[in-house]
Design a protein around this nucleic acid. Structure first.
Lengths: 203, 203
DNA sequence: GTCTATATGTGGATAGAC
DNA sequence: GTCTATCCACATATAGAC
């Protein structure tokens, strides 16, 4: 077995082009609403040409999601690791950044909506994604509790739940009406949260 | 014009049966994922038989949404009109009730996900729905401010935004993992909100 | 690795009988 | 008001040439 270790280098380019073409189309029309041929056309291929790189439409979808998730995580990692209120402020920055990439926001909103159906190909993917994200946020809050920045008599897991819910919910409303100031709204939420998390005055 | 005032009485029964059959199927598979024939079968008709009552699949979808919205609003009206913290407690009760009807929750979650796409037949419907709901919640909070129950230096419109977002976001996570206690989470959120809205001690 | 051609299946809507 | 039969468009996937 000579050189099968790393995936082929030639052809990676078109693979990336397909992923880039697929994301906005899945975002605009949903997985079921975006024909494979339209993705192929956007990537300047024919539909069977596309299927040479991805064995099925389903696998293409999962590749798109994983790719975009990886990107977002790279972006977050630095500020995120601090934990506590810094992490919450990092989330505000993430929301602000999201308002500059509506297609990406729509990709996840549209697909998670489709994905709550048990029969949907990305159902398991989203189950795992939310469990993972809840864990991340919970740990960031717990970190703030450990350092004494946050009070310790609140349930970090429940708060993590609320934070993620707020992100998703605001995105829905923002996508339906771009005039909404999603960043300001989330900032207001974080302010309320920090107020709630502030240790009580002793005495 | 003799008796065209009220819609026909005969035939209303099958129309209702179709709506009842359509809701869970749209919920499970989405609008695009649920074939008209499957709805017809569930309503014990053939597909062309169904189309005698609704001119198109799109019109059927809108009828389903309006029907379910009407029901939910009937349920809310009484407690809701009080405004202030009573209204927020009514929302907690609504969430608790929603956990007993997962199909209904899924119907709106799946369809609003599809519906953020501009091309989706229910896009405008959801635009108007959220504007209407934001108005309702905003007025309920403003009412609490008028009576002196809530402090007045917070933006009721932004809070309404947050409340609706929280409802939607928690539903997504709950649908992906039914073990989550959506009611407890929303209750925790309302508690934080009430704490934030409590008038400051004078002095 | 990309193409043309095609197999195969599905789904919304219409025509027209009863 | 409901049916059978059918049309037509679309979409995923495969076969096989280049």
């Amino acid at each position: 077995m000579p050189s099968t270790r790393k995936p082929t280098r030639r052809g990676e380019r078109t693979r990336a082009a397909i992923l880039d073409a697929a994301a906005p189309l899945f975002a605009r029309h949903g997985y079921r609403g975006a024909p494979l041929a339209s993705v192929a056309e956007a990537a300047r291929l024919t539909q069977p040409g596309l299927l040479h790189h991805f064995p099925s439409k389903e696998r293409l979808l999962l590749a798109v999601l994983e790719e975009r998730d990886r990107e977002a995580m790279r972006w977050m990692r630095d500020t995120w690791s601090e934990g506590g209120s810094a992490a919450l402020r990092a989330l505000v920055a993430l929301v602000a950044r999201n308002t500059t990439t509506p297609e990406l926001v729509q990709l996840f909103t549209v697909l998670v909506g489709e994905g709550v159906s048990e029969s949907h190909p990305a159902h398991e993917y989203f189950e795992e994604r939310y469990e993972r994200l809840r864990g991340s946020v919970r740990r960031a809050i717990a970190q703030g509790q450990d350092t004494g920045e946050f009070r310790t008599d609140v349930d970090a897991a429940v708060l993590a739940n609320l934070v993620l819910a707020m992100l998703d919910g605001l995105q829905i409303q923002w996508l339906l009406d771009r005039d909404q100031d999603m960043t300001a709204a989330f900032e207001a939420f974080v302010r309320i949260l920090l107020e709630h998390l502030a240790p009580r005055d002793e005495g």
